[in-house]
Design a protein around this nucleic acid. Sequence first.
DNA 1: TTCATAGTTCGAATATTTTCGAACTATGAA
DNA 2: TTCATAGTTCGAAAATATTCGAACTATGAA
Lengths: 108, 108
Amino acid sequence: MKETEKFSKIFKALSNPGRLEIYLKILKSHKADFKTKDAASSCPLTQLYKNMKLGAPTLSHHLKELVHADLVITEKDGKFVSCRANMNTFQQIITLLNKHSVEQTEKE
Amino acid sequence: MKETEKFSKIFKALSNPGRLEIYLKILKSHKADFKTKDAASSCPLTQLYKNMKLGAPTLSHHLKELVHADLVITEKDGKFVSCRANMNTFQQIITLLNKHSVEQTEKE
DNA sequence: TTCATAGTTCGAATATTTTCGAACTATGAA
DNA sequence: TTCATAGTTCGAAAATATTCGAACTATGAA
């Protein structure tokens, strides 16, 4: 797949306000878990409902888009679904942007 | 405007393959100009047509979206239009992502 | 002033996204 | 085995995005 196609799909997944909020919550929970040394580093789906005005089918749909874009990894844990950010894809975004822009060392 | 709304608009602007390609070309030309110490740091619109299968109205439309998302700044130079990346918005994207993820210093 | 070139605007056809109700599956508890 | 809960799938309505032809404006050259 062409680089621009791959990344445009990633950005499309982040182009919806609700979906971006979901992703940032998952990223943040990753961070929180990292801080507390919790090996799970995951976020139960139910957490995502909080403060969001999305119905269950919508949330499920959005989550699938994030998984499809390789941004999020889900795992079924009994009755619950837990989510964590795919930090590999996360890093690829940063790398893409930096690759096309001025190198850090050349900054004024 | 809410943070997620603002950034979802930015990501939406990058969610179309053609538009992402345009943006990366503009970013890259910024980098090239920086390297040659060319103060202009700009990319003539005609350059963007190269290797792209987009019609003029489509390119114009896409460019407007990038400008609207504050990703690109255009300037009319006689008969031509030149574009450059808004590095302020660029940096905001990096900051948003890093803010929500594990701090660099905590990386394993 | 006439022409060619660079780019924009308008309008419309087509495709894709977004959202949600209704009906479904899967799991754990009683 | 019955029930409640967590989440998914399906289908469809409404909203948005994509693309491009045709017609337009603006500039510089002849």
